[in-house]
Write a protein that binds this DNA or RNA. Sequence first.
DNA 1: CGAAACACCGACCGACGCTCGGTTTTCAGG
DNA 2: CCTGAAAACCGAGCGTCGGTCGGTGTTTCG
Lengths: 140, 140
Amino acid sequence: MTNKKGGSLSNTLPQLGELELAVMQALWARPEQSANSLLQALPQPRKCSLSTVQSTLERLHRKELVHRTKQGHAYVYSARLERSQLLGRLLGGVIRQLHTGSLDPILSSFVDFADRIDEDTLDRLDELLQKRKLERRVDN
Amino acid sequence: MTNKKGGSLSNTLPQLGELELAVMQALWARPEQSANSLLQALPQPRKCSLSTVQSTLERLHRKELVHRTKQGHAYVYSARLERSQLLGRLLGGVIRQLHTGSLDPILSSFVDFADRIDEDTLDRLDELLQKRKLERRVDN
DNA sequence: CGAAACACCGACCGACGCTCGGTTTTCAGG
DNA sequence: CCTGAAAACCGAGCGTCGGTCGGTGTTTCG
């Protein structure tokens, strides 16, 4: 049975590889970069050829994670999603894989994860939550 | 450069496959099952041979997601993690891949995800959070 | 003892991400 | 306009992973 993964977004994108991630990081650090520029920007032990970066960018482009425009004879790339947006999408993908219908398990597992986090962070989460609830009250 | 995925950086388990997930679901639905029993329990369009289920269980066992004991000539398997625990671990893996140092982006992207959730759920999250904060206060 | 049930081993396949070298295209400076 | 550098483009190969079996050995039980 063919493992039907391909379907661009909306579905669970197949978890980024190491280089793909590094490229995205570089792109978040400084938008509007060429493949060459991106190659230079890669962390020390991550050196590879320009071709490699290019094909990685090609993959990223197919996954609709970067946007590109031709400028002169070269492409200039930018991230299409903010880091937090990508994180949200990835999170959503994982959650969708394991949800039960009820939201409770999601919540408790998140709070479980938050268990390893200091109390300040818990407070901040609380803040965000309250803010969200307020906004919601205004919207509706 | 050899793709050092095997040990996965830190401990991000490489996202479960379709069958692996199905087996885990079956195992959560009813613990203590044999490979054969698991095979029967799989959803309709998921039919495959016993060997396939066995090697999937083997993989799951290597990933330490199931526990097994020999009972007679056959293994009996159980999940080593609750669904919510696995979810938490998976979530943690994704987060670790994209964290910035600051926790804020994590939190806001989670709350972003929660944006599509009704207010009741938000309230329940709040509850869980408060409870957690209390427990924490008692423990320390 | 013999058959059934199961574990165990090895093989193959397709999908992915990474890696690169060679070829073609494109642009800009002389 | 011509040429050389830079980049895109193409295709190949490699390793890993999940899924899929079939064959072979081993254990159990009637």
